[in-house]
């Protein structure tokens, strides 16, 4: 379990990094935290010819809070989001709560938010969050910068819409107003493992009725997905145990996951039901 040989470039600027990528295309791979990539390289499941290290690029370790959105830079580590205090409102709470569930402390210390999204594991907290909030991924190359919406970004397991010459330089997330309620629930066998199934919810309530509902699921498809069925059940109803149970059932009835070593497909459906209900309950209390 030793990696294959590669060339190593420690980029000192984004310009340098993207010009190397532009030259080498998919022969090169960007490394930030490396907490998934290096493990895959140790298994020789990933074997980039060149590794472009962006850890020394200035300006990427920034959380840029704007009026309606926040941009999380490519070198922002999980741990910083977990510790919180920078992103206001319910979004900050959700980042802290979900961030606490990313791997273990040493992984969170080094791994990055954007790296996790670029890795595109459909059971990753940050991928599910990106789907939940329709995040926009800022892709930078020598050709310039473009923003890719979440629903286009996550192509399939470990595959994104990033071109080989692009770097994910930031992820833009909408800030959530105070009348949003966020909830998160995931099920994993052991502390710190990737979730088998995860649910994340953001619910807006006005006058005792749900006016906007977002429900996202991880671990049920090749991409993190929104549950439009659950969202449709929720909007217009009063929050409460019955509403949540109905939404959970709707979510469960509309997923077609695959089974794996952790259980058959039916088991993931069970977990969707349980996690959606729990994330809603955590978001809104028993109602």
């Amino acid at each position: 379990m030793k990696p294959a040989s590669f060339d190593y470039v420690s980029a000192s600027s984004i310009d340098q990094a993207v010009s190397v990528l532009s030259e080498l295309g998919d022969e090169a791979k960007v490394i930030a935290g490396g907490q998934s990539l290096v493990a895959m390289m140790n298994f020789r499941l990933a074997r980039p010819a060149t590794l472009v290290d962006i850890n020394r690029v200035p300006g990427l370790d920034v959380i840029d809070v704007g009026a309606d959105s926040v941009a999380v830079g490519a070198l922002v580590r999980h741990r910083r989001l977990e510790l919180g205090g920078e992103v206001p409102g319910p979004l900050g709470d959700l980042l802290a709560e979900a961030g606490h569930h990313v791997g273990h402390l040493p992984i969170r210390t080094r791994g990055t938010f954007c790296g996790s999204i670029a890795h595109a594991d459909p059971a990753s907290e940050w991928c599910v969050l990106a789907a939940l909030l329709d995040a926009r991924m800022e892709a930078t190359s020598t050709r310039g910068t473009r923003l890719i919406p979440a629903e286009e970004f996550f192509v399939t397991v470990f595959t994104t819409a990033l071109e080989p010459d692009e770097i994910l330089t930031a992820v833009h997330l909408p800030l959530l107003s105070e009348n949003h309620h966020v909830g998160f629930a995931e099920f994993s066998r052991r502390a710190g493992d990737f979730a088998i199934v995860m649910a994340m919810t953001a619910i807006e309530v006005a006058d005792g009725r749900i006016t906007d509902a977002r429900v996202a699921l991880g671990g049920v498809a090749a991409q993190p997905t929104r549950s439009s069925a659950a969202e449709a059940v929720l909007v217009g109803r009063a929050p409460g145990a019955e509403t949540f149970a109905d939404a959970a059932s709707a979510a469960a009835e509309n997923v077609t996951p695959h089974g794996d070593v952790h259980g058959p497909a039916e088991y993931r459906v069970d977990l969707v039901r349980a996690m959606v209900r729990r994330s809603l309950t955590r978001a809104l209390g028993e109602g």
């Binding site: 190593y8 420690s10 490394i31 490396g34 907490q35 290096v38 493990a39 140790n42 590794l51 290290d53 850890n55 402390l105 040493p106 992984i107 210390t109 080094r110």
Partner: peptide, 14 residues
Amino acid sequence: DPVRSCLMFAVQAE
């Protein structure tokens, strides 16, 4: 900071 030294290349620790 505690870090997994199997998930990092020495060149990165310069």
